[in-house]
């Protein structure tokens, strides 16, 4: 699930960069092929999550991501000011991860919507198309920065990456990084 989504996301981001940034566009060329890859990787981005809806463990994770408890209140702000280690206890997902996933989910919806408007330009008026590319361009910049931040956080935490690969983390790590998780460990989640 995460692997498919991240592959699609990186494909969309890399092709976007090669289409948009002049110095990359000069090196890579092949504009038409890039457009096709970008369109399809983009439109398929929500697919892994939609397929995952059929799995109970993923639905449980979605609930965890959606709900903000008292300990999440102000967590992200404290993490920004004092670092994630000093921001207070978190459940399986800390508030930063919850906000990131929700923002990316919303952003993917917007990117797919605006992308479709530009993909089929004959279906909408010029002002709508201009608006769509305006939103698509700026949101792409925001998403790109967030994804870089997301990868940076993962690079700093080898055990979190191990957990993403295997579905297992050590009890000590979970206690340290996600102290409130052990209490609701009613079902083992796997990806």
């Amino acid at each position: 699930m995460h692997r498919t989504t991240s592959t699609l996301m990186m494909t969309a981001i890399i092709t976007a960069a090669c289409l948009y940034l002049p110095f990359l566009a000069e090196i890579v060329g092949r504009r038409r092929l890039l457009v096709i890859i970008h369109e399809w990787s983009g439109i398929l981005l929500p697919a892994p999550l939609l397929a995952g809806i059929f799995f109970r463990s993923l639905r449980a994770d979605l609930t965890r991501l959606n709900r903000f408890g008292p300990h999440d209140h102000g967590w992200a702000w404290r993490a920004v000011r004092h670092g994630t280690g000093a921001a207070g206890p978190a459940g399986k997902f800390n508030a930063g991860q919850k906000l990131f996933s929700a923002f990316i989910a919303g952003a993917v919806l917007v990117m797919v919507g605006t992308g479709l408007i530009m993909w089929f330009p004959h279906l909408s008026a010029l002002t709508v198309r201009t608006g769509a590319s305006f939103v698509h361009d700026w949101l792409a910049l925001v998403v790109g920065i967030l994804v870089i931040g997301h990868i940076r956080m993962a690079l700093k935490d080898p055990e979190a990456r191990y957990g993403m690969r295997t579905g297992r983390v050590s009890r000590a790590w979970a206690k340290r990084e996600h102290a409130l998780w052990t209490e609701d460990r009613s079902e083992n989640s796997d990806r």
Binding site: L109, V110, I117, G131, A132
Partner: peptide, 14 residues
């Protein structure tokens, strides 16, 4: 919220 902002951006972005 993000979806609504996106829609508003499409409507008024031009």
């Amino acid at each position: 919220g993000v979806a609504a902002l996106g829609a508003a951006g499409v409507a008024f972005g031009a």
